[in-house]
């Protein structure tokens, strides 16, 4: 990962939300929506895959949301309604104005995976921060080895980006396995936790870079499967989530041991993350 390569300086400027307009809204699941945002005036710096922005719903609050695409110059954020602010943001309709700060934090370090096999493991809404990885790899597909996406969800209706997933499944140069915890009657695919297809995957440990994002237990257990296969911890990257507030490593709300996740994360290698994730309530 490039360490905070694009993180703005700790300045008043970085703390000032820039107005962006919602130009498109796609309902992903019963509690998630994807917003495409376009700048009203000043455009924020182009983000790297894995970074996040602070999104502000006027009069309600501000939260950190990862960027699920930025390839066409707009900012795309996928937001799950889990509280007052995320409900306001995910419910924002086209033409609504939001405040945006960022982009902040470390990125997935996609360039360092060139020439390697890429294994992407996504759980639930964790597919959102990983979508730029897939899009980035596919833009330069010939530069990477075998590319595998394993994505898990509670049920088929809980997958994000379902139309895009169908396109990815159909691609001959991409191995995609979608698995659900609880199948509905119309699901005829794999049933099981992401660790099951991951456990069946043949990997060349020395040639593999892995990207994992999802709930913390899912990341821990998925990383363990890869470690058991011989993939070194510094070749496994995870995206951490803590209570990001300032985004520039000043306020300390997102401290995780020695890390300030908004500045030193969200993306870290598993050699860094493993001992921290093993500490209860850290």
């Amino acid at each position: 990962m490039s360490a905070a390569a694009v993180t703005p300086a700790a300045s008043a400027d970085a703390m000032l939300p820039v107005p962006y307009r919602v130009v498109d809204r796609t309902v992903e699941t019963h509690d998630s929506a994807t917003l495409r945002l376009s700048p009203v005036g000043r455009r924020l710096p182009h983000p790297n895959a894995g970074q996040f922005c602070m999104l502000y719903a006027r009069g309600i609050g501000e939260i950190a949301i990862s960027i699920s695409d930025a390839s066409d110059g707009t900012l795309v954020h996928t937001i799950r309604d889990v509280g007052a602010v995320s409900r306001a943001l995910s419910g924002a309709r086209p033409d609504a104005l939001l405040g945006v700060r960022g982009p902040f934090g470390t990125d997935w370090g996609l360039d360092t995976a060139v020439g390697h096999d890429v294994v992407i493991v996504a759980g639930g809404v964790g597919l959102a921060p990983l979508r730029p990885v897939l899009l980035g790899v596919m833009r330069r597909r010939a530069e990477y080895g075998r590319v595998t996406l394993i994505a898990g969800a509670r049920s088929a209706g809980e997958f994000l980006f379902r139309a895009q997933l169908a396109d990815w499944v159909a691609r001959p140069d991409l191995d995609v396995e979608l698995t659900v915890d609880s199948p509905a009657a119309d699901w005829d695919g794999p049933v099981g936790f992401v660790t099951e297809p991951l456990g069946r995957l043949d990997v060349d440990p020395a040639a593999t870079i892995a990207f994992i994002c999802g709930p913390e237990p899912m990341m821990r257990f998925s990383a363990n499967v890869l470690l058991d296969k011989g993939v070194a911890a510094d070749r496994i990257r995870v995206s951490l989530e803590r209570n990001m507030q300032c985004g520039i490593g000043v306020c300390g709300h997102c401290q995780l041991g020695p890390l300030l996740v908004c500045r030193d994360g969200p993306v870290v290698d598993y050699a860094t993350a493993e001992p921290l994730l093993a500490v209860r309530e850290l």
């Binding site: 509280g83 759980g123 809404v125 989530e241």
Partner: peptide, 10 residues
Amino acid sequence: ASTSSSASER
């Protein structure tokens, strides 16, 4: 739930 939004995107 009303106060948990910032830490619960996933």
